[in-house]
């Protein structure tokens, strides 16, 4: 019930401000813009050639990264918006609806809404002659595990937001940058310095993006990640995701406790 009503609220906040056409445009312009940026980079380096493994790697990685980026982008605002903009956080907090479940619901809806721009990017990939080799079951499982990983990140971010001030930029967007750099999203992780490649293997997102490539392109071209079988990647992703979820949940609970202790659940910090 709590999840359902918070999902409904997220949909209202995200979608009720405009017409469906504008909403779809709004949801797709940003991801398409991000993909065009990468395509342009590829284009200038290859001297006008748009094809090859590297292109497919970065295009698919970037398309699926939108699920992470867009969800975290929005989740990054929830606490600050509720607390300082709509000033409803204290009311939601004292209602029988668990604030934790409320955040779960809102991030779940955002994740679902982000599937729309992802579909558009997948469709546009046809024009780039991306050799799709979709393994449906694996893809569905990947989506589910991705959702766990993304909401864990959202929870961690929300915990931090409970204790920090609202700044001008989107903290969610900045936060998702960690995954963009360290998870082999748009380049293979062996390009990173040695320590960073090792760190990447401790992140759930690295395995998730590897599963994405395996389920959409039917293969893994990252030289480090291709050393694992699909089963190994899935098992590692599940274990690390569970760990990540527990860490995020505990962090959120601690932040929740500290926010109440400090009396900052209804603070306004804008400057």
């Amino acid at each position: 019930m709590a999840v359902r009503s918070s999902m409904w609220l997220e949909y209202q906040i995200e979608a009720n401000w405009t017409s469906p056409v504008i909403f779809i445009l709004y949801n797709t312009l940003k991801p398409v813009g991000g993909s065009l940026l990468l395509l342009a980079m590829y284009y200038v380096v290859t001297g006008g050639f748009l094809g090859g493994e590297s292109l497919y790697f970065l295009y698919i990685g970037n398309a699926f990264y939108m699920l992470v980026a867009q969800t975290l982008f929005n989740v990054g605002w929830i606490i600050h918006d509720d607390r300082e903009h709509y000033q409803t956080m204290k009311y939601i907090y004292i209602s029988p609806l668990s604030y934790f479940m409320y955040l779960m619901g809102r991030s779940a809806m955002r994740f679902l809404l982000s599937l729309l721009p992802l579909s558009v990017l997948i469709f546009l990939g046809v024009f780039l002659k991306i050799p799709y080799h979709i393994e449906v079951l694996l893809l569905l499982g990947t989506f589910f595990l991705g959702w766990i990983f993304v909401i864990s990140s959202g929870l961690l971010l929300s915990g931090i937001n409970m204790l920090t001030a609202r700044h001008g930029n989107s903290v969610g967007q900045a936060f998702s940058g960690i995954f963009y750099l360290f998870s082999g999203v748009v380049f293979p992780i062996n390009v990173l310095p040695g320590w960073a490649s090792k760190a990447a293997l401790g992140m759930p997102s690295t395995y998730w993006f590897s599963l994405v490539r395996r389920s959409v392109l039917g293969k893994e071209v990252d030289s480090i990640m291709s050393g694992f079988t699909t089963g190994e990647v899935a098992v590692r992703l599940i274990i690390i995701s569970v760990l990540f979820f527990v860490i995020s949940y505990l962090t959120f609970r601690l932040a929740d406790y500290l926010a109440r202790k400090k009396g900052i659940l209804d603070m306004t910090t804008t400057y």
């Binding site: 990468l38 980079m41 900045a174 936060f175 940058g177 963009y180 748009v186 380049f187 390009v191």
Partner: peptide
Amino acid sequence: LPILSMAAYVYV
């Protein structure tokens, strides 16, 4: 954090 995203483009 924003510098991290930017660094990703360098690695691309």
